[in-house]
């Protein structure tokens, strides 16, 4: 992980086609993400944004029917979900699942140690781990009762999103994909989440924000902005594209693409 330099390729997707329940959702998607970059993938509802996130994390019932995805030089699509996770790919879920009865903090410790084992590092013990997680909890403004609870059990929408980002800051991934992390957050919570994400911005890491609205990008400023619609990236640009989308909506991009 430490030998990744700014500008190295982290993720290269080409011609990706994905079917969900027999329906074509992604129809030939291309995307390149390099170390040090923050990408925002925007698009209307039903464009395939969540499908992309889930497929990159290895969701089993989504069928990849064509295309490639290379992650740090490896064939990403050939890896099991847990192998992707241990290689530093993190998905922040749009709807994190509740798992009553499985302790939050132990899951996180197991996840961290699975990653460390893969990196050839020594596992952290309970004391070291607690120190790490408590520091991150301060950053995410989460109170200690969280440590005793089941995974996302009885969490509000905002708490779940914070929990996702907390996991991310502890796991320090190489590629973080955050699926609609801003949805359902009030403005204070949004700032907290953005702080968490920004704290991870680094030259040896990349972040992909999947979002419907521009407002998250006021707090996490992206290097690249892409419009995903109809299962393809229709347009790419810089921060200015996001602002233009905010002003004009998505229709003009679709029309432009149709005109081509």
């Amino acid at each position: 992980m430490s030998n990744i330099q700014k500008g190295n390729s982290i993720l290269e997707i080409s011609g990706l086609k994905v079917n969900v329940q027999g329906k074509a959702i992604l129809k030939g998607l291309d995307l390149t993400v390099r170390a040090g970059e923050v990408h925002a993938i925007m698009g209307p509802n039903g464009a395939g944004k969540s499908t992309l996130s889930q497929v990159l994390a290895g969701r089993p019932d989504y069928a990849v029917i064509a295309g490639h995805a290379t992650y740090l030089g490896e064939d990403l699509l050939a890896l099991a979900p847990e192998e992707r996770a241990r290689r530093g790919l993190f998905l922040g879920f749009q709807y994190p699942v509740e798992i009553p009865g499985v302790n939050n903090v132990y899951l996180l410790k197991a996840a961290l140690n699975a990653r460390r084992r893969h990196l050839g590092l020594q596992e952290v013990d309970a004391f070291e781990f607690l120190a790490i997680v408590k520091e991150k909890m301060v950053l995410m403004q989460m109170d200690e009762s969280f440590l005793k609870r089941g995974v996302n059990e009885g969490f509000s929408g905002g708490e779940k999103k914070r929990n996702e980002i907390l996991q991310m800051t502890v796991l320090e991934p190489t590629l973080a994909i955050l699926d609609e992390t801003d949805s359902g957050l009030d403005i204070d919570a949004l700032k907290v989440v953005a702080n968490g994400v920004n704290s991870l911005r680094a030259d040896n890491r990349a972040i992909v924000l999947v979002t419907h609205y521009q407002r998250l990008l006021d707090h996490i400023v992206p290097d690249h902005v892409h419009v995903l619609a109809g299962g393809r990236i229709l347009k790419s640009g810089d921060r200015g594209l996001a602002l233009e989308l905010e002003r004009r909506g998505y229709d003009w991009v679709l029309e432009e693409a149709n005109a081509e």
Binding site: P60, P81, F93, V97, I99, L107, A114, L171
Partner: peptide, 18 residues
């Protein structure tokens, strides 16, 4: 539950443990 299983896998746990 398939969704719970997938969540745990994306956090790096092996299938048997999950």
């Amino acid at each position: 539950d398939e969704n719970m299983l997938f969540y745990l896998l994306t956090r790096g746990l092996d299938r048997q443990t999950a």
